[in-house]
Amino acid sequence: MDRTTIIPLIPGQIDIVTSKGEFNFQEVLDDFANAESIFVTTYNISARRKELIRALEAATDHAEVRIITNIPNRFERYYGDSPRERASKSIERYTQRLDPSNIENLATSFNFSNHSKVIMTENIAYIGSANYSEESDHSRETGVLIRGKDLVRVISEYLLPILIDEGIPYFGGMLDDKKILLSFLLSRLEGAASVIRDGLFTSVGHPLEDQEVYNIHDPFLMKSELEGLVEVLDEIEDDLDNEFREVACLEHVADLVDIDSFNAIRALCDYDTPIHELAEFDSVEYASDILSEQMVHNEDMNDASQDAVDSAAEKHYDLAIAAEEPVNELYKYLEQVRNSFQVAVNEIKRLEGQQATIDNT
Rank of each mutant, 00 (worst) to 15 (best):
F112T: 04
R338K: 15
D255V: 12
S109Y: 05
I162L: 13
L175I: 05
G167E: 02
E57W: 06
R74Q: 07
F75T: 06
L268Y: 04
E227G: 11
P219W: 13
T41Q: 04
P11C: 07
V284P: 00
M222H: 14
F75E: 12
G191Y: 11
R153D: 15
E209V: 01
K223G: 06
P207I: 11
V257P: 05
R86S: 03
D176W: 00
L182V: 08
N114Q: 10
F341G: 06
D61L: 08
A248T: 03
R197W: 09
Y214H: 03
T142H: 04
Q211S: 10
S340Q: 09
Y158W: 09
S139I: 01
V230M: 08
E225G: 13
K332Q: 08
L186N: 13
F184K: 11
T5C: 02
L159P: 03
L250T: 04
S116C: 02
F201K: 14
D239V: 06
N302A: 12
G167P: 04
D303Q: 14
D31R: 08
D99Q: 02
A356T: 00
I155N: 08
E325V: 15
F281N: 05
F341L: 10
F25I: 04
S136P: 03
D300A: 15
N242E: 11
S311D: 09
D359H: 07
E277C: 04
R3I: 00
I259K: 15
I103D: 01
Y78Q: 01
D198G: 03
L160K: 13
L159D: 11
D359T: 00
K179L: 13
L159M: 14
S116D: 11
E347L: 06
L160M: 13
D270Q: 13
E347R: 10
E352I: 10
L182P: 06
T18V: 13
T42H: 08
N298G: 02
E314Q: 15
S129Y: 07
K50E: 14
R197P: 07
D258S: 14
I275L: 14
E209N: 14
V337Q: 06
R49Q: 12
R140V: 15
S88Y: 00
E251H: 05
Q355V: 03
D137N: 04
S292R: 11
A192T: 11
Y126Q: 02
Q336D: 12
S183D: 09
D234P: 00
A87Y: 01
N73W: 04
P100Y: 03
Y317W: 12
G21K: 06
G173H: 02
R197L: 09
S203W: 11
Q354T: 07
E325T: 14
F32N: 03
T41V: 14
V343P: 00
I119T: 12
L200E: 12
D359R: 14
N105D: 05
